[in-house]
Design a protein around this nucleic acid. Sequence first.
DNA 1: GATGAATGAGTGTTCATTCAT
DNA 2: GATGAATGAACACTCATTCAT
Lengths: 197, 197, 197, 197
Amino acid sequence: MGRKSKADVRKKEILENFYIILNEEGFENASIAKIAKIMDVNPSLLIHYFKTKEEMVIAFVEYLLGRYEVAFKEQMLGAQSPQERFNNVLDIMFGEDWLNFSDQTVFYACYYLSTRNIRIKELFKTMYIKFREVLIPHAQSWMDAGIIKQTNPENVADFLIIMNEGLTYYDKLMGDIDGFRRRAKFLKEAVIKSLVA
Amino acid sequence: MGRKSKADVRKKEILENFYIILNEEGFENASIAKIAKIMDVNPSLLIHYFKTKEEMVIAFVEYLLGRYEVAFKEQMLGAQSPQERFNNVLDIMFGEDWLNFSDQTVFYACYYLSTRNIRIKELFKTMYIKFREVLIPHAQSWMDAGIIKQTNPENVADFLIIMNEGLTYYDKLMGDIDGFRRRAKFLKEAVIKSLVA
Amino acid sequence: MGRKSKADVRKKEILENFYIILNEEGFENASIAKIAKIMDVNPSLLIHYFKTKEEMVIAFVEYLLGRYEVAFKEQMLGAQSPQERFNNVLDIMFGEDWLNFSDQTVFYACYYLSTRNIRIKELFKTMYIKFREVLIPHAQSWMDAGIIKQTNPENVADFLIIMNEGLTYYDKLMGDIDGFRRRAKFLKEAVIKSLVA
Amino acid sequence: MGRKSKADVRKKEILENFYIILNEEGFENASIAKIAKIMDVNPSLLIHYFKTKEEMVIAFVEYLLGRYEVAFKEQMLGAQSPQERFNNVLDIMFGEDWLNFSDQTVFYACYYLSTRNIRIKELFKTMYIKFREVLIPHAQSWMDAGIIKQTNPENVADFLIIMNEGLTYYDKLMGDIDGFRRRAKFLKEAVIKSLVA
DNA sequence: GATGAATGAGTGTTCATTCAT
DNA sequence: GATGAATGAACACTCATTCAT
């Protein structure tokens, strides 16, 4: 009764190739035709699956942010005692690995898109809310263990996210690894001082 | 000091209209033809002045960042005593006015462009270096006056910039003014705690 | 005799939906995909039934003209005496009901198609021949009854059809009901004068 | 001060080639690309002159109907006495030349378009109003000379147009020259009888 | 300085159709 | 009977740019 749907597999494949083109050519030069070309497939096939380019872009952002989410959660696993977890979280959020995970051009292209498309903005918001939901219980446990002197775990989560994004934003521009280390160290210490005091 | 040539006036006019189109249509839909249209002028005239679109884009980023620079410096004027200046700088960098000055879509479009075009990246770096150059002497004076306990004024400048950009980045997304105030207050206090301690 | 096959039912359903699309979107914008969409069916199903779009178009014209035929014949029924029938025929052919039955855009789209496709032209010719076959016996009876002074009933039939088509053509353009009434009245009187004399 | 405008010449050239394509390929298959191809010119040049295809189509209808207008007026010239003019007009409107002047496929394609586009409908109406304006003074002169017994020259004009269009419409379909002659003769006589009586 | 002609590559999208399931 | 995958050609239109005037 009809042909088997390959939609899920095909869509993912298309989005992976979208990523490649976005990275190579930039958002403004990424076209359906170019994606189709490297897939060795007809452009109309992409339309077949996504109806319009806009839908495809939105699906792409969803896919991209999903990857960040998974990676973030994976990083946050492990480390039993609250103190261990505290050190671990700071190491991750001000460490080189996480900085390098988020890639430059594709991510900021999508961030820009969030300023023009409300559905994309919602996807971003949702991602950061999930980040918060991961961090808040940690912050609570640090408060309970007396590691930090705070009353509101949400503020702590926002604080960490904001500092991390600020650092990333700045270092993507500056691009000097030594400067990054210096700044990251300074920020980490500032976080400790301000939260603990 | 010599009057501006007609070319300079015309170029500025073009860049102003570029801004309008960028804001209305988005970076990906901004074209020479559209700018020419709202200027009621022939598209080839824009090419005449800038040779290529890429040159025009770069000139635009220069123009845009120049406006930020001027605005930042203007904000930083005034306030005589080191303590007054300290309060003043924090008020500005975590205040609503400065957040609202940087507009969303055009600025982040340009930031994205910096990830793909080295000349644009340099323009951004130059702007932030100028921000640092404004902040460093302040930081030094706060250190000298014993308001903050730090040894490196450059770190202080970077710290302020990063937190400000992180806050801006996050709040452009979230878009809730109450959340912004809560976060800004928390950040300001964190800065004070961490610098003063 | 025997019941209609599923295919026949389906085909008719498709043609009815073709009519809807033709009316809404115009002939040049009517596509298999759009028909399939309002039927909530897969486009390839239409191809399955008609093999090609051209076949479907031809089937559609046949279906459309069939409706005209039926309607025309229905209108012509009734009215016993030759004189009554004479009045009746004129009333119909120069009346508003018949004008409004033939709809504007779909009918003339098909007429246009008859200029490019010989099978469609034949369908039209066949329809008008059937109209003649309906009218000729009437004309003969009017001649026999001395109501009109003519020798060739075929000429009378053609004459009526031509005047009716001319009137319809003209009034679809003009679109003013008062003008129509004036013209229809004039034409009817002209017919009487010229046939009776 | 700018390059010399070739718009008028170029536009006419384009419309002439549009006519060729329309005739050869039919309205539904006429594309900007095809016109450009036979002109050995880039498709975007046509857009340069007409902005959109719709504008081009409208310009085309204007151009086409303009040709009819000119031809109609030319035909109507000459013939001094009212009686001569009366015979002349009937000869033209029920003659083969005028039938053949209006070509089949392009004209009816445009007529169809008038059912979907109000501007095109207006162009058609305007043309027929001009035909009336040519015919009305003639009709008046025939009335004055006692050739026809009528009170309203407008009705006479409409009558002639309608019969002519009906005849044309019917004969384009039937396509038999003998039938045409028979019908034309019958119609001409009918006109005379009905107007004179 | 400014216009308009002209180009050629490119865009997203729609089309009818075929074929496997 | 009906679906969905896939194609390839075509579509109108926009783009940045060049060049003559």
